[in-house]
Amino acid sequence: MKVLLVDDSKTMRNIQKGILTQLGYTDIEEACDGLDALSKVGAFQPDLLLVDWNMPNMDGLTFVKQFRAKGSKAPIIMVTTEAEKSRVVEAIKAGVNNYVVKPFTPDSLSQRIKETLDRTAAA
């Protein structure tokens, strides 16, 4: 299970990485913004992406649109804040599969990942 973490904050990536490791996901790649992520998805071929919304250079939404435009089907979980929630609809229309509101607990993230993967497997 290869997971790509896209977040401009190193702290945030480390936190997410910590949680993912606790959950048993160890094959993790990091990207610091949408552009960086786009450049990495080709080689890394992630099975799951955790994408922050608000990032410099290319935000999460734009990244998701471009990633989907390439025909990639890998499930995407958008990481948002309470304030951004009203905009999640845009992200859904861009093709995210689920979202999780910061701050999340290992439990809630694990739950989201399970939901997302179950649903992708069923489809």
Binding site: S9, T11, N54, T81
Partner: peptide
């Protein structure tokens, strides 16, 4: 936007 993002990142990480 840049200001907002900076503040937002601090807040986001702090919440964890």
């Amino acid at each position: 936007n840049s200001i907002f993002r900076a503040l937002h990142t601090i807040k986001g990480a702090a919440s964890f």
